[in-house]
Amino acid sequence: MKISRREFVMASGAIAASLAVGPKLAMAAAGLPKIKLGVGLKAMSPIVINLVIGEVLGYNKAEGFSVTTQVLGSNANVQVAVDRGEVDFGVGVPSFGLPVLAQGEWKKSINFYEYTYPYKWDIAVLPKSSINGYEDLKGKRIGVSGFGATDYPVTKNVLQSLGFDPDKDFKWVAVGGGVPAGVALERGQIDALAYYDVGFGLIEAAGLPFRLVPRPAKLPLIGGQFLETQTDRLQKNKAQVIGLGRAVCKSSNFILANPKAGALAFLRMYPEAAPRGSSQDQAVESIYRAINRRIKLYSPPYPGAKMGSINVRELQTEAAMNHWNISDYGLFYTNDLIDEINNFDLDKIRRQAKEYS
């Protein structure tokens, strides 16, 4: 999958309006510098819970800034916004960044923290479906949330690794995210749904039926998601870059220590995320069920690796699967900040999580 310069320019057209839309938070610390974080979502979702709750937990304030999260609609939009300096930080994804690197056009940005590790996608079908393995999907209609979301290119890569031609062997259908995706499956508009862990949690919480197709035995470790910023910002304001990474690292550990406390913190920032008419306990349970699959991916699946560190083999695997010719990944990522990002009192964060109410 390639992103042309024309597509980057077209994507930027959606950004100006999106930048004006952010969470209506009253807890932003007065007087602190405000930084903008772009995410490739159409609406705020607990999928990015560990990126945002540092604001209400005081982790951003401890680093000397306040964060406003901007929903920009797609990962391509985020990449444009970071490159143009329209947001200070963004979510970086290899499926959109590596093609640019392969074309020799990756110049301004760098990924410095992996906040979610592979592998987070699955394929779901209705409980009585005759599809019992990925080999049964040939000729079927596979739904994805959108063609600008990572579930589309990553699932295509996996199917290609199994010997399929993703463009000829399947019909791809954009069905939207969250509950609408589950409704499309339930109503038979698609035969299968390729989606991510938190999305399936939202569908499950809504009571919609599905079952996950067993994953292939050799699933490639691809599709991690990163924090990125302009290389110039990293060089000139290294402390701020480390600070955001540390706030996210603290938030991730907070959620791991007490997932329901993390859900409560998210709801305090985004009360509109609560199901209509629900009590606080019911709303917390809903968010918890949505994130339960995701939180295990906050920690690296590599022995001895520190949280947030980036394993270049993930990038190399995805590049090889797509025939992207990349000899040097040095411009794309760095692990130089990981030790400083992880330099905090982990036991204190865990105690805070256990005591949070």
Rank of each mutant, 00 (worst) to 15 (best):
I3Y: 14
F8M: 14
M10D: 15
G22C: 00
P23R: 11
A26Y: 05
A28I: 12
G38I: 06
L51P: 06
E55C: 04
G58P: 05
L72W: 08
A76C: 09
Q79N: 15
V100C: 03
Y113F: 15
E114Q: 15
Y117E: 08
A124H: 01
E135C: 01
R141Q: 10
R141W: 05
I142Q: 03
G143Q: 09
G143P: 05
S145P: 01
F147H: 08
P153R: 04
K156V: 00
L162I: 11
P166W: 05
K168H: 13
K171S: 11
G176W: 03
G176Q: 10
A184P: 07
R187Y: 06
G188W: 12
G188R: 07
V198K: 03
G201P: 04
I203W: 03
E204R: 14
P214Y: 01
P220I: 09
I222W: 15
Q235V: 08
K238F: 06
K238H: 12
G243T: 00
G243W: 11
V248D: 10
K250V: 01
A257Y: 10
N258K: 07
R276P: 01
S286I: 00
N292M: 03
R294C: 04
E314P: 00
H323E: 14
N325W: 08
I326Q: 02
F332S: 02
I349L: 11
K354G: 14
Y356V: 00
S357E: 07
